[in-house]
Nucleic acid binder design. Sequence first.
DNA 1: ATGGCGCATGGAATGCGA
Length: 256
Amino acid sequence: MKLATWNVNSLKVRLPQVLDWLATAKPDTLCLQELKLEDRNFPLAEIEAAGYKAVFSGQKTYNGVAILARDLPVDVSVGIPGFADEQKRVIAATIGKVRVISAYFPNGQAVGSEKFAYKLAWLEALTRWLADELRRYPALALLGDYNIAPDERDAHPDWQEEIHVSAPERDAFRALTALGLTDAFRLFEQPEKSFSWWDYRMMAFRRNFGLRIDHILLSAELAARCTACSVDKAPRKLERPSDHAPVVADIEDLAA
DNA sequence: ATGGCGCATGGAATGCGA
């Protein structure tokens, strides 16, 4: 089973690239973030024609998340229960035996800002909810744009901003993993300076001036069956790319 | 040097992302 996540920065603009990537990478499940479109404009026909089902929660201009899967996603839930939020950042569904969550974590703008406080409150609510979800669903994967580079090696050494690498954000990431979730990428040997996002400006991609902020966290049951995890940089090299690259994990099928 | 680029809205210039 191949699980993937990709912040597409507008599904309307990136749809051809998403369809191409589905055809070549052939994931079983693909979580998308930053759709930037309302549900009535979701390109369901094109995605179904490519052989995928989809569930989604979108809004105009900002945010928006989806789960694409070969098999029908069921028991769909939107948002974080008990956390009132206009921003469409979370969708969860069960695909086969696996609970899949596609999440677009808040950016946070700058440490100490109002948006930073929202980011930390959102993370706390997510973590509280995930504790329950893990009890209900032992085979669980949390995929998405976390907007957190969890470790020093996950940020280019010249990264000058505090946001994405600050201690409170990294503490919040650790609180999530402390629930029993494993960063699939770090189960394996990886090239140095492996990132998943590069700014459009400053020739950042060419200089590999990036951050690893897109992650696949796996519950123990799935982590034990994970055989590979990598960033696919190919779509970042295309014309009019998203600023994020997809992250992919391979997981051995669960016993019937 | 806080900008650069790309996308959204709206139909020019501005806000936001990370």
